[in-house]
Amino acid sequence: MSLLVELVLLSLSTILVNNFVLVKFLGICPFLGVSKKVETAVGMSLAVTFVMTVASACTYLVQVFLLDALGIGYMQTVAFILVIAVLVQFVEMVIQKFSPSLYNALGIYLPLITTNCAVLGVALLNVQEQYDFIHSVVFGFSGGISFMLAIVLFAGVRERLETSDIPKPLQGFPIALITAGLIAMAFLGFQGLKF
């Protein structure tokens, strides 16, 4: 199988079959917290995609050239948290300086991602699956896209829930959680897909 086909299959399976939010249950906090409006959901997921892609690349380099080289691969969780936190801060500063418009669109969401488990998850999964550099980056990017797909779909549903007649005990978060569960069950339909 050529590399390109392999990468396309990897990203498709990450987005649909192994969706980060709805199947792996990573990044649930922003999924519930920032999904009241489609607009903010898109902003948040763009920021997540961006950080996940860059974080996969950086953590891969750290893993291979630092941790593996010194034989301390077991320190990956701590090291990755450090790398991701610094990375997010750094990216935020750079964006603020060079692209105020992008900063206005993503800026408020960036600090939220520092401790997002989807970002740490993608870094750790890269190591677990023993992906090489290209695979890691593609996996990170499509992980971000899978997050975007889930949160934008969810925000669309929640916007419509706003105006529907919901029984009182279920208003607010209960109905949101039920909706999330139903969407996750819908994504179970992709489980049978075989490439």
Binding site: L66, L67, L70, I72, M75, V78, A79, L82, V83, V86, Q89, F90, M93, V94, Q96, K97, F98
Partner: peptide, 21 residues
């Protein structure tokens, strides 16, 4: 290793904060 990483990153952020202020 982690100590050095922390130090390097801290220094990097410090420099970046000045450079990109």
């Amino acid at each position: 290793v982690l100590g050095v990483m922390g130090l390097v990153f801290g220094a990097l952020l410090g420099v970046a904060a000045k450079a990109f202020r």
